[in-house]
Structure formats: structure tokens, C-alpha cells
Amino acid sequence: MQDLIEYIALSLVDDPLQVRVSQYRRGSNVEIRLQVAKEDMGRVIGKRGRVANSMRNLLRVAAAREGQRASLDIMEPK
């Protein structure tokens, strides 16, 4: 699951060195956090969140394949 988000993010951003993906487990839910450079935020969110929502949709399917649930948070860079 982390792989999937990492692959998509690395493919879409201009600054791959600043891509960070981490995975946390909360009960039955896997929480994936994606962090990218400020300039790349728009590329991973998209107009009206279309890119982010598409990633969430694919993530949901990937998680279901492993009998799990997953959520995706896109974090502002510190």
C-alpha cells in the first residue's frame, strides 16, 4: 500500500527527493502519510482534490486486497 502511494507520488512530483511516505497502524486501519515539497502539493492533490481522491480510491482497493482498510493523509511540509 505504501509502495503504491510512493510510486504515484514519485511519478508526479518535480522534486522526488522531498517525497516521504510513512505508514502507521491504528487498529484495523492503516494510515498512510504522504509528504511532498510545497511546490508539489498541487500535483498530488489536484483540482478539487481529484488526484488525492483517485489515489484514495486505488489505495482502498489495494488495502481490500489484503483484507484491510487504509486512509491517506497528505501533509504540508514542515
Binding site: 504515484i8 511519478s11 483517485s54 486505488l58
Partner: peptide
């Protein structure tokens, strides 16, 4: 076709960029 469209959208973004 929500998932199929998501797959198509993400794929096309990656392909276009590449």
C-alpha cells in the same frame, strides 16, 4: 466505474509526465 476512472486518471497523469 469510479475505480476504473481513478486508475485511468492517475495512469494518464504519470504517462503524460513521463
Amino acid at each position: 466505474a469510479e475505480t476504473l476512472n481513478a486508475l485511468q486518471y492517475i495512469s494518464s497523469l504519470i504517462i503524460n509526465k513521463e
